[in-house]
Design a protein around this nucleic acid. Structure first.
Lengths: 200, 200, 200, 200
DNA sequence: AATGAATGAGTATTCATTCAT
DNA sequence: CATGAATGAATACTCATTCAT
């Protein structure tokens, strides 16, 4: 029982490693078993098929990264600072495991989409992350700091915008850290204040 | 010589077609040559390798879609309307060829990145699209309609945000047209006005 | 000891079940042990190898179906009616478990053939079924109803003819019940009366 | 063109050979290419897939054997002698390629059944073999030599009976030639005259 | 009596690429 | 200019069997 779990984890670790280096399409059963000096068949002792391995990694990675979005301390006066902090953590985590992040965020399989989908109307009732964002936005509106709007729709845009920045940063791998920071800063600046001057 | 060019184009057309239908990983030399009733070897007469084919398609597709961003008529009073119009066209075009769009925008090969990269500092001197965006922003600032900012950085954020929306829309393939439109609208609303209330 | 027998039977039941559903080539050790929540290795505690399982099933199934041929009541005047009744039962039973029937009747392993073989000269001394057929034929000859002949040879032909009808009915799976009945009727009609007109 | 055909034939020959020795389920792509010292992939240069190989062999073998049923000289007075001659040839041919015969006659794939099916009502309009048998039977009835009957149904029974004899002879591989001949003789004797005495 | 881990050999199929002709 | 033959390495997956515990 214990041992079973152990080896499952070793397999997952190796798989994660391969994905980090070669992307998700670089992952193969043989590469895994070569790395751990086992025969290919053994994989099917621990996992139903290759897909179960991928899904495990995807789901676990997703949870790990998402966890960073939660657990941010309240800021009553400037609730947008919560958003900035949470998503900055999220961005950093994603950039730290870029291949994994791409692997699950760009995966279109329905089983994965059940976990990662956020665009459907009403999704904020299902996705905890979206819910958190919505709550924040509603609070901002209630206290008169945010402009009135559809909170879910706004949450979705914050999400997709940030997602776009992350993916682009991952693909253009050699952007200087300084430039990355400038982009992140300006990203939230635009999201919060827009490009149009107040009072214009 | 003429003929050489012709056949290259036929090959590219067929390849593009396969990518549209089966995604980039569905493209294979054999599928191309089967479709044009040639033998596999001939490909290497016209292209160095499979990668050269992909790069050609990427570059060409990129240009085609980008063309839509240009050719938008001036709006002196509300320059952001130019942005909205240009990028709405761009979004529609991308969503019309989703597999192709993903194929080149998510491709991380350096040769491709030379064409698609937009995050580096100073890029607006190289990328015509970024340049156009920068010009627009500078105009907005000059006339007092946009808040003062680093135009290039802002242009990059507009770009990455929109990119994120597009990719997410492509991956979550079954979002209703109505919801798509709502998202696009709110996307530009947030980019232009921010979420924080004017005067807050 | 008792328990040993019990588990052997469970294994055989499950195996029989798999064969019924997926044919003999669909049977695998793993499928058996999955179904009974045991580990693969255990099979080799109760059976020498996979083949011993198959042989057991074959033998047992054969006996079960054959039992139907016996236990048919005498018909002194028209002994061929016994044959028709017995073999009609047999045909129905075979068609009810087609995969099993094929599995053992088409199996050419010598060990299985010891049970299912019926073509050798003198076999009627060993095979109870053939013996019964022979007896019937001899009786028919004695009372002058059947034409004189070598009873064993005739019994073998009745057997192979019927076997051919069954196998063909199994392979062409979608014959209407009506047509099946017509074929069975004509089968015995030909066997009993031949195609040549009496007196021709 | 010529060469292509040549190698296709070599592949088919080797495959046929393997089937003869190990049965159809013993045939594998690797075994073929090992035998001809080629790499596995090359098979797909000459055939779409493994199934195309099998079907080629099946169909060709079927045709070859069936050809023997046709081309039998007329016997006006005793038309049943045509049947005996034709089917005796057929039996001999089948016994000469037992594994092949089994391979296609016991194959239940619909594509194969289209060629080998003979039990459906009305099939004699499609199957040339059945047609020939029917014609013979009709002639026999017309001239008063055969008893009146449904010719198609009778043809089907002649077919299935003979089929049963063949399959059984193939499976019980070591029957003496003498016994084989006795069985064949008695087979036709029963089919033609039945077991019931004329006048009984 | 039973497990669970493991193997090794096997399956069909696909692919980019090369090269003599 | 073009072909057709061929390779070699890869893919995921399945199986019967063994054996130490």
């Amino acid at each position: 029982m214990r041992r079973q779990e152990e080896i499952r984890n070793i397999i997952l670790d190796v798989a994660r490693n391969i994905i980090s280096r070669e992307g998700i399409k670089g992952l193969s059963i043989r590469k895994i078993t070569n790395a751990i000096d086992y025969s290919p068949g053994i994989i099917y002792h621990y996992f139903k098929d290759k897909n179960e391995i991928i899904e495990s990694i995807v789901r676990e990675g997703y949870e790990r990264i998402l966890a960073l979005i939660r657990s941010v301390k309240r800021n009553e006066k400037e609730p947008e600072k919560e958003i900035k902090e949470a998503f900055t953590n999220y961005i950093k985590a994603a950039l730290a495991s870029p291949e994994e992040y791409k692997a699950f965020m760009l995966n279109g399989d329905t089983s994965v989409l059940n976990t990662t989908g956020i665009l459907k109307k009403g999704i904020s009732k299902k996705s905890r992350t979206l819910q958190l964002l919505c709550d924040n936005i509603q609070r901002g509106i209630n206290q008169g700091r945010y402009a009135p709007c559809d909170p879910e729709l706004t949450a979705q845009i914050i999400w997709t915008s940030t997602f776009g920045l992350i993916i682009k940063l991952i693909i253009e791998k050699d952007i200087s850290q300084e430039q990355v920071n400038r982009l992140i800063d300006q990203h939230f600046n635009v999201l919060f204040n827009g490009i149009i001057r107040k009072g214009a």
